Amino acid sequence: MKPTVSSTAHWLVLGAINAACIFSLTYSPTHYMENISYQTITQQWLEDSNQLNTEEYMTIGHGRLTQTTLESLNGKIRNSTISADVIRESNHHVQIKIRTVKLSQDNELFAIEKTPDLFFKRQYVLQEGAVLNYELIPTTDKNTMCVYVHELSRLRCMNH
């Protein structure tokens, strides 16, 4: 004698399978870990053969983003710290609004006169109230976060 399964049980199983399929299509993990400090170090040779060294640190979490940039050139060090509110967020995109900007000096960061395009981009980025869009790029390493900042046309990959 064959055991019989009610049609209701069949529909429940099919419904659960469909729900799991829909969830797997819409769910994708975030491309960063909240409240983890990511960092990167870059070196850039300028036209006058000087080397500009930059360290960047970024933390995203609880509706806030903090980014610190340290630049060194010819033994001098300058820094900037940006605090921002996350105003829109998805698995692949973070939009922020700059709340405060603190610079180590009243002057802009280094190499402005040597990279005029960077000067104009920084004028916008370092203004309180500016809105920035960070596109999160998937990586295979969970300890790495890659972001493309649309307003700077800049891609940065950072590790923690």
Rank of each mutant, 00 (worst) to 15 (best):
E89I: 03
Y27P: 02
M33K: 15
N107M: 01
M145Q: 07
T54M: 01
E113K: 09
E128K: 03
I60Q: 07
S153N: 12
H31C: 11
A9H: 04
F110D: 05
T68H: 10
T115C: 03
S104P: 08
Y27I: 07
P138A: 08
V149Q: 09
T4G: 02
L12G: 05
K142S: 11
T140G: 05
K121H: 08
L132S: 00
K102Q: 14
P138Q: 07
T115V: 07
A84D: 09
R78T: 01
T69C: 05
A16L: 14
T139H: 02
L70H: 14
K2I: 06
V125C: 02
R64V: 15
E113P: 02
M58A: 13
T139L: 03
D106W: 00
R88D: 15
E89P: 00
K142I: 10
H31K: 15
I17P: 05
N53R: 14
Y27L: 07
S83V: 13
H10D: 04
Q95F: 08
V5W: 05
T30G: 05
N91G: 07
Y38H: 12
M33R: 14
Q39V: 11
N74L: 14
L14W: 11
N50W: 13
N107V: 00
C157E: 01
Y27R: 05
S6Y: 00
V147N: 04
N35I: 10
L152F: 08
I36A: 14
Y27D: 06
L14N: 06
V149W: 02
A84K: 09
S24V: 05
